[in-house]
Amino acid sequence: MKLLFISRFIPYIGGREVILQSILHKLSKNRQVYLLTPDKGYFTPDFTIFNFKYLQEIPMLINKIRPDIINIHAFYFTKPILLSSHKLNIPIILTLHGLFLNYYGKKYRNFFEFIKKYLENPNFFISVVCEHHKKQLKDFGISLEKIYVIKNGIDPKRFIYVKNFSEGILRKNLYLQPSNRIILTVARLTPLKGLGYLIKAFSLLKSKNLVLLISTPTGRYNKEEMNYRDFLLKQAERLGCKNKIIIQFHDYESVPLLYKSCDLFVLSSVIEGLPLSILEAMACNLLAVASDVGGISEIIKNGKNGFLIQPENYKNTARIIEKSLSLGGARKRHIIQNARRTIIKNFSEERMIGQYEELFLNIKNKLL
């Protein structure tokens, strides 16, 4: 079976790109796999990459490859693909890693009106990363028969057996004292991640030895994110905690070292899908606190394997952070162990890859 994936890709990195990289490498072991992307700089013998500069090039490349299945992972490439593949009778799956129907404006909702109409085509399907998104699409009027749920997954071994890990090395590199406790968040520099609320919450914490480390992925040095970084630092200065806020870029390979070295993970997003950072932190035995948005409550069961916070509520966030940092040893170990079991049982990379492969086969056979 010949599989074509269309998306942004490395070095433009976020959770979507990490997931897609995993899918491409795993499926290429027994399938013909192709990637169409506007991003250059990634080389691999495992699958074939075609770069495009303009959307108008996509139909020509699809016609050249003639895939059995097209899987789109960036919604803004969808329209020209639908229009071209309709003529070629190729089944298409649009994978949504996030869904912002109640957040973005009219233009975004108009796109989904177009999608809803096009789903009358028997060759077009949608996959989402959480049950929450499935419900949103259903409420928008999209038939459940057209929606598949494949939850994100990671390789737990990568986050428990961390190479080159040395206790205290992060504090040394950040010029911190051994007594400093580090609160970590791993997120893109965007208001969607609620970083402003997290900094407000941090400013309310009573302990004097806390540091907030905001780790953001390399490869995304755009003006918008740099401006937001400056905004966050100015906010921290106004709140009197700038000297305890560290914003750093880290490549994806070094992120497990951060999880291993910090004392608490917090994700304060305003809107989410099924974030990889929570799965990774929990797999790394790092206590996780996260906003109750999107599919996060499908991962974290409050008080059992982590803690949920109210989105956009910095006072509640501060209170839950204080509670998490003050947990007794036995209770903390119990929650951390439950968290790791959750990841191994429900959010493994192996399960995710198997479900994507099953979806492709089912759709191909269904349309024969």
Rank of each mutant, 00 (worst) to 15 (best):
Leu4Val: 01
Pro11Arg: 07
Gly14Cys: 05
Gly15Lys: 05
Ile19Val: 15
Ile19Tyr: 05
Leu20Ser: 06
Leu20Thr: 03
Lys26Glu: 15
Leu27Ile: 09
Ser28Arg: 10
Asn30Ile: 08
Arg31Asp: 14
Arg31Ser: 15
Leu36Val: 10
Gly41His: 02
Tyr42Ile: 04
Thr48Val: 11
Phe52His: 12
Met60Thr: 13
Leu61Arg: 11
Ile65Trp: 13
Ile70Gly: 06
Asn71Leu: 09
Pro80Arg: 14
Ile81Pro: 00
Ser84Gly: 09
Ser85Arg: 03
Lys87Trp: 09
Pro91His: 11
Ile93Gly: 07
Leu94His: 02
Leu94Arg: 04
Thr95Phe: 13
His97Arg: 09
Gly98His: 05
Phe100Ser: 05
Tyr104Ile: 05
Asn110Arg: 10
Tyr118Cys: 11
Glu120Trp: 10
Asn121Thr: 02
Pro122Lys: 10
Val128Tyr: 04
Val129Phe: 10
Glu131Asn: 13
Lys135Val: 10
Leu137Ile: 09
Gly141Ser: 12
Ser143Arg: 12
Lys146His: 10
Ile147Thr: 04
Tyr148Asp: 07
Tyr148Lys: 14
Asn152Cys: 07
Asn152Glu: 10
Arg158Leu: 14
Tyr161Glu: 12
Phe165Ile: 03
Asn173Leu: 13
Leu174His: 13
Tyr175Asn: 15
Tyr175Glu: 12
Gln177Cys: 11
Arg181Trp: 15
Ile182Phe: 08
Val186Lys: 02
Val186Asn: 01
Leu189Gly: 01
Leu189Asp: 00
Thr190Asn: 09
Lys193Gly: 02
Gly194Lys: 00
Leu198Gly: 00
Leu210Val: 10
Ser215Leu: 12
Asn222Gln: 09
Lys223Asn: 12
Tyr228Lys: 03
Asp230Asn: 11
Asp230Val: 02
Leu233Gln: 01
Gln235Cys: 00
Leu239Ser: 08
Lys244Phe: 04
Ile245Cys: 05
Gln248Met: 13
Gln248Pro: 00
Tyr252Phe: 14
Leu258Cys: 06
Phe265Gln: 01
Leu267Asp: 02
Glu272Leu: 04
Glu272Cys: 04
Leu279Gln: 07
Leu279Ala: 08
Ala283Asp: 06
Leu286Thr: 01
Val289Ala: 07
Ala290Phe: 04
Ser291Gln: 03
Gly295Cys: 10
Ile296Leu: 07
Ile296Cys: 15
Asn305Ser: 09
Ile309Glu: 02
Pro311Ala: 12
Glu312Ala: 10
Lys315Gly: 06
Asn316Tyr: 06
Arg319Ser: 09
Ile321Ala: 05
Ile321Gln: 02
Lys323Arg: 13
Ser324Pro: 04
Ser326Met: 15
Gly329Ser: 13
His334Asn: 11
Ile336Gln: 03
Gln337Tyr: 09
Ala339Phe: 12
Arg340Ser: 04
Arg340Phe: 04
Arg340Lys: 14
Ile344Trp: 11
Ser348Trp: 05
Glu349Ser: 13
Glu357Thr: 08
Leu367Thr: 05
